[in-house]
Amino acid sequence: MRKLISIIISTTLTMLLVGGSAWAAKPSVGFIYVGPVGDGGWTHAHDLGRKALEEAGHKTYFVESVPEGSSEGQILKIARKSDIIFTTSFGFMDPTLKVSKKFPDKVFLHCSGFKQSKNMGNYFGRMYQAKYLAAIIAGGMSKKGRIGIVGSQPIPEIIRHINAITLGAQQSNPNIEVEVLWINSWFDPAKESDAAQALIDNGADVIVTMADSPATVQTSKKNGVYAIGNDTDMAIYGKEAHLTAAVWNWDVYYLAAVKAVENGTWKSSADWWGLDSGIVGLTSFHPDVPQSLIVQMNREKGRILSGTMDVFDHGFTKRDGTRVTKALNDGEMLGMMYYVKGIISKIPSG
């Protein structure tokens, strides 16, 4: 009996955290998040997109902190009560595909992956373009000529971003050195902070983070160096350090995708939206950033927006010295597993 009571207590506590309620007339939308909505980074950015859908009159559901390895049950649960399901981390790809087959009349959209089916599509933004622009500022603001990058998980997406940052920083400082430390996690504030500290101790004076929390911005402030925020505006955590942030504006995509489903015009596809759509962008600049640097950044931004240039389409040198002369296609960018020249760290062999 007492065991029973304890089991009831435990389950109730768990249920309280999950929550949920009734149906609505407009298509309802469900979200699967890899981190907590209050992470101040990646998941927070997606959740701002979800809130935009709520404002547009859609009933929304979400589950946060879903482990990538065991997400199928949660996706199933959300799929039962939603018409459109967004799964917002790379590791959710296969489980999403599996669940999508059980609900052929519902639409599944997976962020950052590549597998599709009749009712499952992919979406992502060309964040590397925003990172490239932010790095022009970073390179110009580094007095020691050294940028430290706190890497999250060593996958092609993040390596692409690190390369874009290096190429961007070289625009404003051709001799810039980039050091990368991998924390091998998406979210671990204490470790992110320690990594930033180690990079600063080793000579970096601008820190760029790929991880989800604002810990690096705070550590940079403490050390009197600059930082670039990741995914959401992190200036509130240390405006003295925060040069700018390359951010996601997921509402742009979510509103459009849900509208398409509502109007019956949606078709399964792989959407990779660029800077021109507004899905990625930069936040306002630190007062220390000189106007000349902003002008230089805007010139590159104009070239990307007009389509005359993209980050990886006009040749670059790899870290090992080999020269890439032709423009990379999307597939090559999505599978990028090498560093460009200018990065002093070695790529992890994992």
């Binding site: 907590p36 992470d39 101040g40 946060e64 671990d188 504030p189 204490a190 902070s193 604002p214 705070q218």
Partner: peptide
């Protein structure tokens, strides 16, 4: 110790599995 010394702000799950 996390918000007072290591990471002086609040984010969800700040202890990250410690």
């Amino acid at each position: 110790y996390f918000p007072l010394a290591l990471t002086p702000f609040w984010v969800d799950g700040i202890t990250a599995g410690r």
